[in-house]
């Protein structure tokens, strides 16, 4: 076969392979098994989640933050709108932590029904604003959390 024809066939095959792989990833549900974190609803629905290190993500439910200086913990609830899980964190939460913000915590749900963590990660929204004037409604930040 002519070299030039061969090269073009190679190009088309490579394109087909790439497009096929992309289509498979985009339209199959293989993403279902690739979860970075569970929502409270998902976590509570699983009976195998107890005592395993997992990530839990959702909104810090307003009015639930409680600082315990003696025990050096901060406790709050993470909610996804329909379910909520109480969380207890040992150590300092990050500076952006506040009521209503999206967070992902790493830790485990223990038999006491409380999710124990030492790592709170704060999820920022895709809104970037100057400080003066209107402030972002923290509830809006959550809107980018329940994607996927």
């Amino acid at each position: 076969m002519n070299e030039a024809v061969k090269r073009r066939i190679f190009a088309l095959v490579a394109l087909a392979v790439a497009a096929g792989a992309l289509g498979t990833i985009a339209f199959s549900d293989m993403g279902e098994d690739l979860v970075y974190y569970w929502s409270p609803t998902e976590l509570l629905a699983r009976d195998d989640a107890m005592n395993h290190t997992v990530r839990l993500g959702g909104q810090v439910e307003p009015g639930t933050i409680d600082w315990d200086k003696e025990a050096q913990t901060v406790s709050f609830s993470i909610s996804d709108g329909s379910a909520s899980v109480p969380v207890s964190c040992k150590g300092n939460p990050p500076q952006m932590f506040r009521e209503g913000i999206g967070v992902v915590v790493e830790g485990e749900l223990q038999p006491d029904g409380v999710f124990h963590t030492e790592k709170i990660m704060v999820k920022h929204s895709n809104e970037y604003k100057a400080p003066e004037g209107t402030e972002t409604d923290p509830r809006k930040l959550y809107s980018t959390l329940d994607q996927g």
Binding site: W67, K69, Q72, N92, P93, P94, R98, I101
Partner: peptide, 14 residues
């Protein structure tokens, strides 16, 4: 060390 609630303002300082 646990900050008192007022220290975590929800904003990054510095």
């Amino acid at each position: 060390m646990i900050p008192i609630a007022a220290e975590v303002t929800g904003r990054i300082e510095g």
